[in-house]
Design a protein around this nucleic acid. Structure first.
Lengths: 348, 348
DNA sequence: AAATGGCACTCTTGTGCTCTGAGTGCTAAT
DNA sequence: ATTAGCACTCAGAGCACAAGAGTGCCATTT
């Protein structure tokens, strides 16, 4: 049942014909008729012969006829075969890449960059763009500070990596004095600045076994805080743009489906799952229709690519659009955008 | 042409009839026929008489007939009159209020509270809920800190009001030493902690005129920073929930309109404008259809109420839904939610 | 044996027509 | 002032019909 075995059942001519069929369907959205294929300059066959071939393709489950007197449209399986083996991607011209780079390059903060990347993906494809917030394995402590709010509520401010500021209120069992807080902060800053947060956590845990009771309170605070920061990283996030573009596609006209899709966007969970698969695969991914396992996405395809900062995969970006999309153009666009974003983030 | 003069043209009976008509239309969404009104127990008139009255109401522009053989539907003007003068709001039972309070009360952070309020509004009305981030006039400095990133990029961390942390990278003309930064931070903290940010800005500006050149650099930085923080407050924001609920209403079936509406939500600008009007009016507001001045909202009504923290209006919340909505239930709900949110925020 | 022309068949789409029911507006009667 | 009665209008449903698009299959050609 694998794509490859399907492929081996197809001779050169059938493949070519299938490819043209998919391309034609993608470009005009109408079921493709034998006559129309026969007219295509790449195909020198009579409509009757085309029909014979199409019958085979239908038997293989690659195309289907909505009704007797209509042409054929690709099935999900057909799209799969197409994108995996047949599509000829059109690489972006260097000029276009430069344009992308310069548009993306004008922003300097990380968040602005990501937002811009997302809206560029959406703008160029007229579909929805999505970019996950980069998440580095190593979280380097740069600075920590405690600020007393009330007697046992303390605001912890944490600067990590380059310029990410995280803050959180923690509740302590006993009240700490101003100087205790400063002392702890100083200690942590001197000892651990420039170190990885997970290492710090381990260190602190170790020292807790030895230190005497009073110190433990402070340490507990620190642990609690790093815990939170780490878990905050897990509940990571993405920036989406151009969702409403999807409303313009005829295949989304069904309000019920549309709502499911937008609900999925808002809930984020399902989208994250799909993006996760892509990050694990460490390469470009194309999810077609319900393949993703989420019914909200049927009728949609998701094209993703992870992006790297200094050779480490830190996030993934992509576009979400109708299954009938111009894969040949979207695939290279996503690819290039991932590379660009990665390099811009690295050089920051 | 004011609502009131319209009202004075209507005798008791016509008002009553109009009211029942609107209520009936709101409840079943079908144009209301004379016969159906005549059957209503509150009305003891024959269909023919009802028709005469309806003809008057139509002349006044309160109702309209979609076509000859249909009943009547309220116009935007009709709705206006209805909500301003005729609707009998159904106050929430104390029990329901308690339920709201307890649901809302479990969160403690300000942001969680707002998000929850928004989704509660949306959940109870099956429409979209919106709550603006509270914005206090006074911005009290609590703590400031400078952290050197590279030779002339400095991370400014600012803690204001209770526990709001703001941070921003600023670029300086010359490099500062570690101790210069610490010194400046100490100075600012000692001098201005607990003071209002706008006062601080003025103070710093004044002292700039006197101090010598070297000090000016540091002051410039500070000014730059408070400027940013203040402008950040202006570009304020709202939390929205349940947008997709709106997809379920028949009157939103038009994809073109729906897209405009969702685009308006994303752009935020138009929504903010409408919410602003409400905050200025300092009271409950109902915007019907295009009244708001934004075509994206036609077919929609927006019901808003400002909310107060310790007697100062700091934000506004409301719901957005189809013009045909149950005003009698939604109005008190928005009202109560505003009061609840205000009191919970005050007690924080 | 592969490719093709021809043809009968199926199904969608659009059009025109009629019929029905709902609801109105007007007039005359109460 | 109210109402009953009636003629009129209009949307919507149902139906028949024609046109057109496309297929599947078979017989014929190469």
């Amino acid at each position: 049942m694998s794509t490859d075995s399907t492929l081996s059942n197809l001779n050169e001519r059938s493949q070519q014909l299938f490819k043209v069929l998919v391309e034609q369907y993608i470009s005009d959205g109408q079921p493709v008729a034998s006559k129309s294929l026969s007219n295509d300059e790449q195909i020198n066959l009579s409509p009757a012969t085309v029909r014979n071939v199409m019958a085979d393709l239908e038997d293989l489950g690659l195309i289907i006829s909505p009704h007797t007197s209509a042409g054929r449209v690709p099935t999900a399986r057909g799209y799969r075969l197409f994108v995996d083996n047949l599509v000829t991607v059109k690489p972006l011209r260097g000029q276009a890449v430069d344009k992308l780079r310069s548009e993306l390059g004008i922003d300097d903060s990380q968040e602005a960059l990501i937002t811009k990347a997302s809206s560029m993906l959406s703008g160029m494809t007229k579909m929805a763009g999505v970019v996950t917030i980069p998440r580095r394995e190593a979280v380097i402590l740069r600075h920590i500070e405690f600020l007393q709010l009330t007697s046992n509520r303390i605001l912890v401010i944490l600067v990590v990596n380059e310029e990410e500021v995280q803050n959180r209120v923690i509740h302590t069992e006993r009240a700490f004095t101003e100087s205790e807080l400063i002392q702890t902060a100083n200690y942590l800053n001197q000892e651990f600045m420039g170190k990885d947060l997970s290492l710090i956590r381990q260190s602190v845990l170790d020292s807790m076994k030895q230190e005497r009771d009073d110190m433990q309170h402070i340490m507990k605070m620190a642990i609690q805080m790093t815990d939170n920061v780490v878990s905050d990283q897990n509940d990571d996030d993405f920036i989406m743009a151009g969702q409403t573009n999807l409303m313009d596609y005829a295949e989304m006209a069904n309000m019920e489906k549309l709502r499911q899709l937008f609900d999925a966007f808002n809930a984020k969970r399902d989208v994250l799952h799909v993006l996760d698969k892509s990050i694990q695969a460490e390469g470009m991914q194309v999810f077609i229709g319900e393949e993703s396992g989420y019914s909200a996405f049927d009728g949609c395809s998701v094209i993703t690519s992870p992006y790297k900062v200094s050779d480490e995969v830190v996030g993934v970006l992509g576009v979400i659009g109708p299954t009938r999309m111009a894969y040949d153009k979207v695939i290279p666009l996503v690819d290039v955008t991932a590379k660009l974003l990665g390099s811009l983030l690295s050089s920051e």
